[in-house]
Design a binder for these strands. Structure first.
Lengths: 283, 283
DNA sequence: CGCCTGAAGCATAAATTATTGACCGCGCTT
DNA sequence: AAGCGCGGTCAATAATTTATGCTTCAGGCG
C-alpha cells in the first residue's frame, strides 16, 4: 500500500511529534529524496531517533525503507506526468528531441494505416517469390537508398533481389520476370510515368506489384496488388523529408523483421551472414 | 531520465567490472531495494568502492541516489502495469509496434549520450568547413549508405562533401585536405585499421576528425576531435542491427537539422534545392 | 623499456541509521 | 497525595552504510 495513504490513515492515532513528522512528509514528499533522517529531525526541531521510531512504527524497516517507498509512490502517482512536463518546456531537452517526437508521430500513423493483413500479404508474397523466383526492386530519387538497402537485406536472407535505380534498365530486367515474381516499386509521390509503365508491364507478366508510396492517392499506388503507404507531415519541408524517410525505413524494417521471423531457415541464414560480415569488417 | 536507460546506454563504454554491475542492476532492478552497496559488491565478488564509483560515474550523487532513482523507474513502469500488461499480450498491436519500442529506447539513449555541446561543436565544425573548405566523408560496411546519405544532404545545403566508401581512395583524396577541413568517419565498431590510419593522417594535416561509432571505447573514437556515439541493443542480432541503424540515422538527422537552422542562407538554399528535385522527379 | 593512464581494491574516514538507557510528564491506583 | 506504570522523547552511542584517499596493477604509447 502506498506509504502516503498509510501515514494519513494512522495520523489520527499519533502523538504530537509523530503527527508533525507525518504532516511534514505528506506535504514535502518530493523533498524527502534529499533529506536524511537527521535533516528531517532538524527541520522539525526534534530528535533523529524519533524519526526512525516513527518509520518503524509504521511497519517500515527503517528510515531508508520509508524513503524508498515514498519515492515509488510519487513516481507512480506522477506516472508519465513528469515526462510530459519536462517534455513541454523543450528548451533544455537533449538535442534531437523535437525531431524525435515528429518522427514518432509519423511512425505511429504509418503503423496504423498499414493493416496487419497488408503487411502479412507483403511478407508472404516476398517469401514465396524468394523461394522459387525473384524480387525486383526499383526506387527513384530519394527513395533509391532505401530500396537498395532493402534489397541488400533481402539478399542476406537468401532471397534473390534485383535492384535498379534506373527505369529504363529495370524495364529490360523485367522482361525476365516469371509469374509469381514480385516487383517492389518505391516512389514517394507515385507520379513517375516510367515507373507506372513498368508496374503495368510487370502486372501483365503475372507478377505481383507491391508499391511503397506516400499515403495519397496516386497513379502508381492505383496499379498495386499490395500497396504499402507512408504517412509523414511537417510544416518545414526538410523536416518532413526526414520524417518521411524514417517512417519509410520503419515500415521496411517491420516487413523485414516479419520476414525473418516467418521461417527458421531464413533466420539461421541471416544470423550466419551477419556474423560473417562482422568478421570481415573488423579484420 | 530513467536510470535504467542511462545504464544501458553507457554499458558499451564500460570496463568489465562496471559492465557486470550494470547487468546485475538491469536484471535485478527489483531486488535492488534490499541491497546495500556492500551486498551488491559481495554478490558480484567485487569491492564496495567499485560500486560507489560506478554510481558516481553515471552522474548520481552516490549509491543511495541511484537506488532511489531505480525505485522510481520501476514504480513508473509498473505504475500503469495493467495498461502495459493488457497492451503487451494484446497481440493485435499494429505490426511493428515492438520494434518501434526498441528503436525508441535506443534513440533515447543515443540522445542522452551525445551532449548538446558535442552536437553543437559538430555542427559548427561542419558549418565552418562548408564555408571555406571541404567535408570528407567515409563509411565502411553497413554504414556506407548512411555516410552517403549524409553527404548528399550536405550537398543540398551547399556544402562541398566528398564521399568515399573505399579506404584506399579516400587516402588519396585526403592528400588535398587543408587545415580547417573536416573528416567524418563512420564505423560501427571503430576497429578498421585503414580508417584509423586515415584519421591519423587527416589529423596531421590539421583537419578536424569527427567519428561516428558505437558507444564503445574503440581505436577510431580515440582519435577523434569530436566523437558522436550511437547506442543500440537487442538480443537478436538482426534487430540490433536495425535499431543501430535507426539510432544512427536519427543522430545524423539531428545534426542535419541543427545545420539547417544555424543559418538562413543555407536554409533558403536547401528549400530551393528540394523544390527543384521534386519537380525533376515528378516530371 | 620506462612512462603514463585508468581501473580496481584496501583501508579508513565520514555519514547515516538504529538502539539503548535515562528522563519526564501524565494518568491511574491505593 | 504519594507511588507506580507507561508511553513518549531525547542524548549518547553502537552499528551499519557510504564515500574517499592511497596503492597496486595492467595495458597502451612513445
Amino acid at each position: 500500500m502506498s506509504p502516503l495513504v498509510k501515514i494519513r490513515s494512522e495520523r489520527d492515532s499519533m502523538s504530537a511529534v509523530e503527527r508533525r513528522i507525518a504532516d511534514f512528509i505528506l506535504e514535502n514528499a518530493l523533498l524527502l529524496r534529499d533529506y536524511s533522517s537527521q535533516q528531517l529531525a532538524n527541520a522539525l526541531g526534534i530528535s533523529q531517533s524519533s524519526v526512525v521510531k516513527f518509520t518503524q512504527k509504521l511497519g517500515f524497516r527503517g528510515y531508508p525503507d520509508l524513503k524508498y517507498s515514498v519515492g515509488e509512490a510519487i513516481a507512480r502517482d506522477n506516472g508519465d506526468a513528469d515526462n510530459v512536463a519536462t517534455a513541454a518546456d523543450a528548451s533544455d531537452d537533449p538535442p534531437g528531441t523535437v525531431l524525435w517526437r515528429r518522427k514518432n508521430e509519423a511512425e505511429e500513423a504509418t503503423r496504423l494505416i498499414n493493416s496487419r493483413e497488408t503487411v502479412e500479404r507483403t511478407v508472404q508474397a516476398i517469401d514465396a517469390a524468394g523461394r522459387s523466383g525473384k524480387v525486383f526492386i526499383i526506387g527513384l530519387g530519394e527513395d533509391d537508398i532505401y530500396a537498395r538497402g532493402f534489397a541488400l537485406k533481402l539478399s542476406l536472407l537468401g532471397i534473390l533481389a534485383i535492384y535498379q535505380f534506373d527505369a529504363a534498365r529495370m524495364a529490360a530486367n523485367i522482361s525476365t520476370a516469371q509469374p509469381g515474381d514480385v516487383l517492389l516499386a518505391f516512389s514517394e509521390h507515385g507520379k513517375h510515368p516510367g515507373l507506372c509503365k513498368i508496374a503495368r508491364f510487370f502486372h501483365e507478366r503475372r507478377g505481383q506489384v507491391i508499391t511503397v508510396t506516400r499515403h495519397t492517392s496516386n497513379p502508381l499506388r492505383a496499379l498495386a496488388d499490395i500497396a504499402l503507404v507512408v504517412s509523414a507531415h511537417d510544416d518545414l519541408p526538410y523536416i518532413q523529408s526526414l520524417v518521411y524517410q524514417s517512417s519509410l525505413q520503419h515500415l521496411l524494417d517491420t516487413v523485414f523483421v516479419s520476414l525473418c521471423e516467418s521461417d527458421d531457415t531464413r533466420h539461421a541464414q541471416l544470423v550466419a551472414n551477419l556474423d560473417r560480415i562482422q568478421q570481415t569488417l573488423d579484420s
